[in-house]
């Protein structure tokens, strides 16, 4: 449990009638359309999506910054959100990893809380892996041929083991060519509060990531993590701004939005 990379392979449940959707705080406040598109994708597959009203945050910001008590307080407040034995789907690798691996330890020594957190972790799935492995996502690609780059978050790669899932989903679309970028497995430099605390290094990392993505000539970058998405696209925007470019040189969107749009779904209106 303490070292996720030991055992990432997992068994997947049969297709459920309903799932809980745990949106994450970044999606709720900053990229709601990605959450909406994820919900639409799930519903289109015939899944009833339950959005627990009292959800806020997985506690990750405080947890990784070194405020375990504050993280605990938030996590404990979230433990009652999923009363039924249904899968919990999270449109973010790092938040899914938080639920799956860390909640149990964050809640402390109370055996009842630990058991509850562990049970939640065991039925938590990152959206992309849920689409592929549980729902067997297979839809007709209605879009024009396009080349895109894929960024996989470090948590998705190393805590959820889902870095191949995104590729597979894109491959199933048919008209999408995946452009591999230099140092693809490397972190984009977000790291939560790391980007605020060490802007020098974070900037160096995200600048390299943006350069590598642009060098592929891909029309856009797709990722299943909103932290990385904001980090990469806001950096690219800043570069465009500084260079006086009016057209975005590296637009990006959440994998859910991309999948929905390509397969004839109605994507949520952008703000």
């Amino acid at each position: 449990m303490s070292n996720p990379s030991n055992s990432l392979a997992r068994a997947y449940p049969p297709r459920p009638a309903a799932v809980y959707f745990y949106a994450t705080c970044l999606v709720d406040l900053f990229v709601p359309e990605a959450g909406m598109d994820a919900i639409s994708l799930l519903e289109r597959e015939g899944i009833r999506v339950i959005f627990p009203e009292n959800q806020s945050c997985c506690g990750q910001p405080a947890f990784t910054t070194g405020f375990p008590q504050e993280a605990r307080k938030v996590v404990v407040s979230q433990l009652e959100l999923f009363p039924e034995e249904l899968p919990i789907v999270v449109p973010s690798g790092s938040c899914a990893g938080m639920l799956r691996w860390h909640w149990e330890n964050v809640v402390g020594d109370d055996p009842a809380l630990r058991a509850k957190a562990a049970a939640i972790g065991a039925r938590t799935y990152e959206l992309a892996e849920f689409l592929l492995h549980v729902l067997g996502f297979q839809r007709h690609d209605e879009g024009e041929p396009v080349t895109v780059a894929l960024h996989t978050s470090c948590s998705a790669r190393r805590e959820m083991g889902t870095h191949l899932v995104g590729r597979e989903l894109l491959a199933r679309l048919g008209n999408v060519t995946l452009a591999h970028h230099d140092h693809e497995s490397e972190c984009c430099g977000f790291g939560g509060t790391f980007s605020l605390k060490h802007p020098d290094i974070s900037t160096a990392m995200v600048s390299d990531k943006v350069a590598a993505l642009k060098a592929t000539g891909a029309r856009e970058v797709v990722t299943a993590d909103c932290g990385c998405l904001l980090n990469i696209t806001k950096r690219a925007e800043k570069e465009d701004l500084d260079a006086g470019r009016r057209q975005a040189s590296l637009p990006g969107e959440h994998l859910a939005t991309f999948l929905l749009r390509r397969t004839g779904g109605q994507v949520a209106q952008r703000s």
Binding site: A23, D28, F30, V31, F51, N231, E237
Partner: peptide, 13 residues
């Protein structure tokens, strides 16, 4: 190194 973050006009909820 980035443009500012800005909350969306409507939250997901």
């Amino acid at each position: 190194a980035r443009t500012p973050l800005k909350p969306a006009p409507r939250r997901l909820r």
